[in-house]
Design a protein around this nucleic acid. Sequence first.
DNA 1: TATTGTTATACTCTATAACTATA
DNA 2: TATAGTTATAGAGTATAACAATA
Lengths: 172, 172
Amino acid sequence: MSAATRDHAGPRRPGRDDACGGALSSDLGWALGVVFRSYAKAANAAFAELPGGPRGYQVLAAAARGAPGSQLEVARHLGIDRTVMTYLLDDLESAGLIERRPDPADRRARRIVATAQGRESLDGLDRRLRDAERHVLNGLGTEADRSAFRDLLRQLATHVSAVDPGSGVCDA
Amino acid sequence: MSAATRDHAGPRRPGRDDACGGALSSDLGWALGVVFRSYAKAANAAFAELPGGPRGYQVLAAAARGAPGSQLEVARHLGIDRTVMTYLLDDLESAGLIERRPDPADRRARRIVATAQGRESLDGLDRRLRDAERHVLNGLGTEADRSAFRDLLRQLATHVSAVDPGSGVCDA
DNA sequence: TATTGTTATACTCTATAACTATA
DNA sequence: TATAGTTATAGAGTATAACAATA
């Protein structure tokens, strides 16, 4: 039986960590913050040498798998401001990892494509990311729980992203 | 049957949102970012008039329920830098919501306590937070899924917080 | 000497507003 | 007129280092 089904049926056990989490309704904000920061720290370490860090990786990965849409659409999907996207692409391009190609259908827009070197670099970066993710998700004991968490989180993100595509404007 | 148990057993369906998420292993980083930003946006709106915004609320809530430990320990638990904590407490104190009391056992340390006004304000703030959380978690269709997500996330955060209590240093 | 809390400084991000070119 | 992309500027947020008081 997974912790997901084991725990949420019963009453909430007041533990040491409930003491100063925050909300009465739940510690959702605290937990999200802790997990997000932990993931960000691991991702920063994994992509320390890549221009743009974790966001550089996200853009490179999107380019390598043939992201649909313009540079602006990719930015919106990743929650990156379009002005930040410009600097990010400048760095990735001068590192020889991606290229900006004019969209034949709309000469205002640019399409981001990964270079051969970019695709090659991505292999190692993917391995680093998998290690980082495994490290963070180790807090869940069973593979079933880890898988359930991934699915629920992805389901939530997909819904949020569909309802409010431009919600990447506000980080606190 | 909940989405948690329904989805993660079967193979991964490549959908529209897989196109530029990021990792090959999963879109964990992308999903965490989207959900975190969405939550941050809702929390910022909910606590727009409170000094310190969402973090001000977390500190106030910790004080109101009698957070154990010094001002520094609360800061560490919440992932707040100690220098930022000083400004935050200054604002909350001058708003009449909290007080700093010297710890009789260690005259270097201060204990944070909520004033009557602070505890009173907290009621309305809690209500606002519950609404914000409900809004974000609406992306999960069933109450069982929402509850499972909360539990898994809390379990993860508790583990991370225990392993690496000072991981609040690095936000990207 | 180490730690809590505070203050001051420098720096890194980010948001905003222009501007160019296309549509 | 509206949009994609770029550039420049100002502001918010953050990290770093120093300091005073206490352990």
